[in-house]
């Protein structure tokens, strides 16, 4: 029944009258649509490069694209036989897994602490301080980190030497970097995520807590039985969506922070940095396009699965 009335409300008439009725709004959405055509849909042709023996120079992109030799999956074979591919995929997935878990645990704890402290004036100051790194670019952050890790003048080596230790060559020793990268990613992102969770906590109905206090619930019990269960939907959605993006790496974090240092590649090379270097340094267009297509495709499958799971858990929050 409802579907019928809905259908009846739809503007009747043929294509032209409908076009005319929506003419002005259509013109308003045109500039944006044109942008999407050029910057989101035209690049989809670029995917074909992954199956081609592509050359950059010559008579225009499309001419090159259609005249260059089709090699089908040779670029992919080359990519996966190099041995680099597995290290890169491993790095990308493992780092992102760590980011996803810590990106929930730390901000939720911080939001709970901020929500509980008695002096609300200080709460604002803490929140502002922790939000600051989010507004700095990775380039600026890399300089801040360099001030501590500079092998000759850095603060850390000065302290180490003061206690009689040997200075560490930070930008060539791989063993410290998994920790540094995970630490800095949380350092930069925790303020933002804390605000998200704090907003959800503030949105919880105060009467729940009042009732709990009347029943003699302790603070810990209130958190365990009211706050966390009510945060669960938000956490679930953000978690699943993050899993959908597990194949995408934050380029600045892995490229700028280690200062693109060669000796650190085994622990800092991820899909995005690999694709960038293959394009800009070694000029292997076909192979880097293959890696990019691999990344997009797996990313797409993961997002679809994640969305499917979200719509099962809580249909309200599904992406589409």
């Amino acid at each position: 029944m409802r579907a019928n009335t809905k259908k009846a409300e739809k503007p009747k008439g043929n294509f032209l009258t409908r076009l005319k009725a929506n003419k002005e709004l259509l013109i308003l959405s045109m500039p944006g649509a044109v942008w999407f055509l050029f910057f989101a849909y035209l690049p989809l042709f670029g995917i074909l490069v992954a199956f081609k023996k592509f050359r950059l120079s010559g008579d225009g992109f499309f001419y090159n694209l259609f005249t260059s030799e089709t090699v089908w999956f040779d670029n992919f074979k080359f990519l996966f036989s190099s041995g680099d591919a597995w290290i890169i995929v491993r790095n990308t997935v493992l780092y992102n897994a760590a980011f996803i878990i810590l990106g929930v645990v730390i901000p939720v704890i911080l939001a709970l602490l901020l929500n509980e402290i008695r002096n609300k004036g200080m709460m604002k100051i803490y929140q502002s301080s922790m939000f600051l790194p989010y507004f700095l670019s990775w380039v600026v952050v890399s300089y801040c980190v360099f001030a501590f890790l500079n092998p000759e003048k850095g603060y850390f080596n000065a302290i180490i030497q003061q206690f009689g230790g040997q200075p560490i060559s930070w930008y060539t020793e791989t063993k410290y970097w998994p920790f540094i990268i995970i630490f800095m990613s949380q350092w930069k992102g925790m303020g933002y995520n804390t605000v998200v969770y704090l907003a959800s906590i503030c949105g919880i109905d105060k009467t729940y807590y009042e009732a709990a206090v009347l029943d003699g619930a302790t603070k810990w019990q209130q958190i365990k039985y009211i706050t966390l269960p009510l945060l669960k939907p938000v956490i679930t959605i953000l978690l699943i969506m993050a899993v959908g993006g597990i194949f995408k790496a934050d380029f600045g974090l892995f490229y700028q922070l280690p200062k693109n240092s060669g000796p650190l590649y085994p622990v800092t090379n991820v899909l995005d940095t690999y694709i960038f270097r293959a394009l800009k340094t070694s000029g292997e267009i076909g192979m880097s396009a293959a890696a990019a297509l691999f990344q997009s495709t797996v990313g797409f499958v993961l997002i679809m699965i994640a969305n499917k799971i979200v719509s099962k858990v809580d249909n309200e929050n599904a992406l589409f």
Binding site: A33, F36, F38, F39, A40, Y41, L42, P43, L44, F45, G46, I47, V49, L56, G60, F61, F62, N64, D272, I275, F276, L279, I285, S288, A289, A292, L293, Q295, S296, T297, G299, F300, I303, M304, L319, F320
Partner: peptide, 24 residues
């Protein structure tokens, strides 16, 4: 739909580079 599809699937870094430098 026009704005949803790019959120799910993109041409990637190389494709963007080629379009911006060689086509546009």
């Amino acid at each position: 739909t026009v704005i949803t599809i790019p959120m799910l699937f993109s041409g990637g870094m190389i494709a963007n580079y080629l379009i911006v430098t060689k086509v546009m």
